[in-house]
Every structure is written in C-alpha cells, then in structure tokens.
Measured scan of single mutants.
Amino acid sequence: MASQGTKRSYEQMETDGERQNATEIRASVGKMIDGIGRFYIQMCTELKLSDYEGRLIQNSLTIERMVLSAFDERRNKYLEEHPSAGKDPKKTGGPIYKRVDRKWMRELVLYDKEEIRRIWRQANNGDDATAGLTHMMIWHSNLNDTTYQRTRALVRTGMDPRMCSLMQGSTLPRRSGAAGAAVKGVGTMVMELIRMIKRGINDRNFWRGENGRKTRSAYERMCNILKGKFQTAAQRAMMDQVRESRNPGNAEIEDLIFLARSALILRGSVAHKSCLPACVYGPAVASGYDFEKEGYSLVGIDPFKLLQNSQVYSLIRPNENPAHKSQLVWMACNSAAFEDLRVLSFIRGTKVSPRGKLSTRGVQIASNENMDAMESSTLELRSRYWAIRTRSGGNTNQQRASAGQISVQPAFSVQRNLPFDKPTIMAAFTGNTEGRTSDMRAEIIRMMEGAKPEEMSFQGRGVFELSDERAANPIVPSFDMSNEGSYFFGDNAEEYDN
C-alpha cells in the first residue's frame, strides 16, 4: 500500500510504541512475548500442572481467558453494579484439565481477579502490559475465525453469508486497541457500523446529549479505520460520505453494504499476525530463551520457528480426527482463516481442507461434555516452508469459486491468482447506482469489472525454506488448481455463540 510509510507498523501498534527502528520493534515485541511466557509459567505453578498438562491447549485457553477477564475493567465495573446470582464479580476462573488415573478430569478453578492481575503485572515488570493482553485477544479471535462461520451475524446486519472472507476479527472485544483495529476485516468494521446506525434509528437519543457526542466521535473513528483499509480513492470518498452524514440511517447502511461487497474484489488491507497460545510461549521462556534479547516478529519467520520446536497437546472428542484438529489450530496460529487453501497447503506441506470436510468441533470443551471418553493427542503445528504475512489485500483475480465463501483475504505475501467468483459478486451490483453516491458507485463498479483474471497478485513473492531466515531465496510455489480455494466452501461450520 502506498501510504505504508505514514502508518505505524503493526509491531508498533502491538507494543504501543512511538516510531521505533526494526531492532527496537523486535525487542519490544519480544518483551511482550516474554511477559506472556513468564505469566503462563507462574500460572502453571499456581495450578500445580504437570509439564504435559501445561502444554494442553484447553488449559492455555482457560488461563488466557482468566487474565483477560481480570483486566476487563468495563465488564468488571458492570458486574459490580449489576450483581447477578451466583456470579462473584471479583473472581474469575474456568475449567482446568488434569490427568488422573490414566483419565482426563475437569476441575473448575476460581481465583481472585486481583490475584491474577498481581501475577500478570509481576510477570511483566510491574506494568499492565496491555500489548500482551491484546495479543491474547487476537489469538482467540484468530481461533474463532478458523472455527466458526459468522453466517447468522452477517444475515442479521443485512449482509450476504458468502462475504465471510471479510469477517476477520469479528469476535475481537471493543477494547483491543490499535492492534485489534489493524486485524479487523472490512466486513467486521461494516458490521460494527451498521449495528451502531441501527441503534440510532431505533433509539432517538442515541446521537443526542453528552453521551451522543461520545457516540458520534466513536462512529467517526470507526469510519476512519474502515476508510484506511480501502485502497481505492472511490471507496475512500464513499467512506467520507458515510462519516460526514448528519443523521446516519438506511442510506448509510446501503452504502456500507455496497462497500463491503466491493471489497470482495477491490480488497481492503487487513493486517495478519501470528499470535500463538500462551502454552507455546511459556515452555520456550522456561527453556531459557530470551525473546527480548533475541527479538521477535509476528509477521516473519519467528512464529514458524517457534511452532517448529513446540509440543502442544489437545483434548480430542471420541469421533474427532486429531489431524483435522491440528489443521484448525495451525490455521489459527498463522492467522489464515480466509487465505486461499492452495497457498496454505503449499506452505504447510500437507493438504489443507475446507472447514466442512474437517471432523472436528471447536477447541474448547463445553462444561456439560462427558470427560470419560476424552483422549488427548499432539497437535501437528509444523510447516514445510515459511512466508511473510501481508497486510495488503493483493490485486484481484477471477477463479472458480464456491457456493460458500466467494473470495479470499490473503494472509501471506505469496504470488498467486486470487480466487473470487466474479459473476456471483457482480450480480449483486445491478441497477442500484442512484442517489448521492452514484458517481462513486459507478466508478467502483467500473474498477471491479476491469479486474483481470490473468493478473498475478504479489508478483514474484515466494515462500522460503525454514533454514532461509533472511528470506534470501524465494520459492514461487505451484498450486494444484483442481483443489478448492475457499475454506468455508459450501460450508456447515458451527455458528459462533458468545
């Protein structure tokens, strides 16, 4: 993207840094990872977990959730003011799984939030270390993106479920800051804005008074975040219109849905970061690795190297396929839920299948599930090659597409044709070009129609051997075009429920 120079890199967003050079960025990201790792080690000690239990991804998720809940100030305040039966607002906890007599047992633990905050700050040299908290939120978000298709949420806001490739980060909490905003897809931002506008339509006082002023500035800020994701002048001009509207209503909703559809071809720039579970960072720190000293990046080879040398386990339900569970977590670790499966298959070195073909449910185990038949197995999170994460949407291309997802959002900077089903997408653009945004709409449609099938995206960008740390010898991959490109292809993934 041309304006790259004016933006802070995501590592800076990730670490609240002012302008830093590459070495400083690597050190501050490393410091953040160190903090998460030290916190995780301490929690495993508190909970008396064995090494194996500490490497269980379900335990990692519970521990991450506990610290996120302990620092969720708004919710904590709300819980104190609106006490609900049987919930102690000062405590947080969740299921911890232990191996007892050759069987997995679930144990519900409860801790004072104050105590968890103390352990977290102690692991982070006394700081609140917001960057580390956001990092864990993005890992949870990436896992949700890989596990669930947001059909219901899309339909509720009037969008087409086939636009799911635009929904990265749709389950990120509001408090995820600049680093969170960077990884949100165009569809996620559109959905947040539509929800806001709908509230304004239904509630006369939404934009009024002292609160209304705050609401208005939040609305304009979200519009600017979305505008910054678009790469064409016409899309940005249309966002200006939406932002400046005196009284946002149905016309703005129409414009936003139009823009979301246009992003299936004229893709937005959305950041991709490899955020790993805390149970990967903990053992690495415990083994003596100093992330701050060595430096770390979320968008280069580092996460690949770390996963190459990590042992992570997962509980497996009786009829689940461990290899499929591994694929789910591998995609989440690489922030690749909406990437082209052919690119992923090449990088991973084994075939990556669409969601609907995987015999696996989510990673988390519900409290009512029976533990008797639970097994555990090693997650295979290694890769054959590594590639640089991208934040450009890439230019655009036609490809055989599917009944489910009709476009992709690249996660890796790797040369390819970008699949999208042009006739299906263009069919949504018939007729409606009147109104105050008509010239911009016409211009956007013209650009979409001009998108050429034979153009290559990320020209000359390749993948790298894991021994090639400096990215000196790019390998331009070859793809098996007979395979499906979309992950949520004609899909039956479970729906995400809060």
Rank of each mutant, 00 (worst) to 15 (best):
T360R: 02
G158N: 13
L266N: 03
W120G: 08
S176M: 04
E24V: 14
E11M: 11
V299Y: 02
F420A: 15
T62R: 06
R470C: 02
I63L: 14
T134C: 14
G460C: 13
S482P: 00
S413P: 08
L306F: 03
G132P: 05
E46H: 08
I194C: 14
T171D: 13
M238L: 15
S377E: 05
G404W: 00
M1H: 13
A182R: 00
D255R: 07
R208A: 03
V312A: 11
M13P: 00
S383Q: 14
A182W: 05
R382H: 05
T378E: 03
L344K: 09
A323H: 15
A234Q: 03
E64Y: 12
Y281R: 08
V270I: 13
S353Y: 08
V363H: 01
L307H: 07
G200H: 04
M196K: 06
A471R: 00
A178T: 10
F429R: 01
V67T: 06
S486F: 12
Q58P: 09
R152C: 01
R243F: 12
N368P: 07
E454T: 12
K325T: 09
R342L: 02
T15M: 09
R441Y: 13
D480T: 12
N395T: 10
Y111T: 15
F346V: 14
A131V: 12
I475Q: 01
S310R: 00
N483C: 00
Q405S: 07
G490E: 11
P474A: 15
Y496F: 15
L68F: 12
R441S: 12
N417R: 15
A263L: 01
P161I: 03
A471D: 03
T390K: 04
S467D: 11
M331K: 06
D34E: 15
K48N: 12
E220N: 03
F464L: 05
A373V: 12
K325M: 10
F71Q: 09
D34V: 13
N76F: 00
L306G: 02
D290L: 07
R267Y: 02
E53N: 06
T151M: 06
F206I: 13
A181V: 02
Q231R: 14
R152P: 06
F71N: 10
L110V: 12
N368E: 14
S269L: 07
T45M: 08
P83L: 02
S170L: 07
P95G: 14
I301M: 11
I388E: 02
D16Y: 08
T360Q: 04
R199Q: 10
G158T: 10
L381V: 09
G94I: 11
C44D: 03
D255Y: 13
G460W: 07
I33T: 13
E107H: 14
K184L: 07
M374S: 06
P283E: 00
M167R: 04
V190G: 15
N205G: 12
S9N: 15
G393N: 04
D497E: 03
S467C: 11
A131H: 14
G362V: 05
N125T: 10
R416N: 07
A260R: 00
D101F: 00
K198P: 01
T215S: 15
G349Y: 06
G349R: 06
I475E: 00
T437P: 04
F206V: 12
Y111G: 00
V463R: 04
R317P: 06
L108F: 08
D72R: 12
S402P: 06
N498M: 13
M456I: 05
R174Q: 03
W139Y: 12
N397R: 15
W207R: 08
G158L: 13
Y313A: 10
S457R: 01
T390S: 13
A428T: 15
I445T: 14
E18R: 00
G356R: 13
R261C: 08
D51A: 13
L264C: 07
W386G: 08
N334D: 08
T232H: 15
A178Q: 12
Q235I: 10
N334A: 12
E24N: 04
Q58N: 14
P277F: 06
L259H: 05
G17E: 02
A411T: 15
S457P: 07
L276E: 09
L61K: 02
S392C: 05
R348W: 06
G362W: 07
G394H: 11
Q311Y: 02
T424K: 00
N417Y: 13
F429P: 01
T232N: 11
Q327D: 12
R389S: 05
A403P: 05
F206R: 03
I301P: 05
I365P: 01
E495Q: 08
A237P: 01
K87H: 02
K305H: 09
R118H: 09
Q399C: 08
L68N: 14
G86C: 03
K214H: 15
N59S: 04
G431S: 09
R461K: 09
R213H: 04
Q311N: 15
K103G: 10
T188H: 04
R361K: 12
A233D: 05
T62E: 10
L418Y: 00
A22D: 04
D101N: 12
V414G: 00
F230L: 15
S482A: 00
E114A: 09
E11P: 01
R118A: 10
S407E: 06
S60M: 14
V476S: 00
H324D: 12
A179T: 07
V242T: 05
M456P: 00
S28L: 01
T171K: 04
K31Q: 08
G450L: 13
L108E: 07
T62V: 06
D145T: 09
D127I: 11
G187L: 05
V100Q: 12
G37H: 03
F429G: 01
E53A: 14
E24I: 12
M189E: 06
S269A: 15
L266V: 15
I36H: 02
P410S: 09
G200Q: 04
K91R: 15
G282V: 07
F488Y: 09
A472D: 02
R199G: 08
Q42I: 10
G93H: 04
D160V: 09
V155K: 14
D16P: 00
A123S: 15
S326N: 14
Y78V: 08
R461I: 01
D72T: 08
V186R: 01
A278W: 09
M447S: 12
M191F: 03
H82N: 10
P354H: 07
V67F: 09
R342I: 08
E244C: 04
T45D: 09
Y78H: 15
I388A: 05
R121A: 12
L266Q: 06
Q231I: 10
F258T: 02
G126V: 06
A233Y: 00
S310D: 00
T92E: 01
T396K: 12
L264R: 00
R75I: 13
G431P: 06
E107W: 05
R246Y: 14
T6L: 00
F488M: 04
E14P: 00
M371K: 07
R38F: 06
M426Y: 00
M440V: 01
M136V: 14
T360C: 15
P303T: 11
N144F: 03
D34W: 01
R470K: 15
M426I: 15
Q42M: 04
R400H: 14
F230Q: 09
S69R: 03
E454M: 04
I57M: 08
L56C: 12
T424F: 03
L418E: 00
K7M: 01
Q168F: 04
D480H: 14
Q399M: 04
E73C: 13
R342Q: 15
Q122I: 15
A233I: 04
N417G: 10
E254R: 07
I201V: 15
H324M: 09
L133Q: 06
I57Y: 03
E64G: 12
G356A: 09
L79A: 07
N334H: 15
E443G: 09
V343L: 15
N224P: 09
T350R: 05
L108G: 12
V186W: 00
M374I: 15
N211K: 02
M448V: 06
G17F: 00
R382Q: 02
G462S: 03
G282E: 06
G200E: 12
S438V: 11
T171G: 07
M196C: 11
N250T: 09
V242Q: 06
A332M: 13
N21K: 15
R243Y: 05
G450K: 08
A284F: 12
A85F: 03
Q122W: 01
T6W: 03
P89K: 02
N202M: 08
G200V: 07
R243C: 01
S413D: 00
L143V: 08
G212A: 13
K325F: 07
L379M: 15
T396L: 13
M426D: 00
K357H: 13
D439W: 02
R221L: 05
I388Q: 04
E114Y: 12
K357G: 05
T188C: 09
Y111M: 15
A472W: 11
L259R: 03
Q12L: 12
H324V: 03
T146P: 01
I63Q: 06
N483E: 01
R416T: 07
E443W: 02
S326D: 11
G30L: 01
I57G: 12
I257C: 12
I265C: 13
G450M: 09
N247L: 03
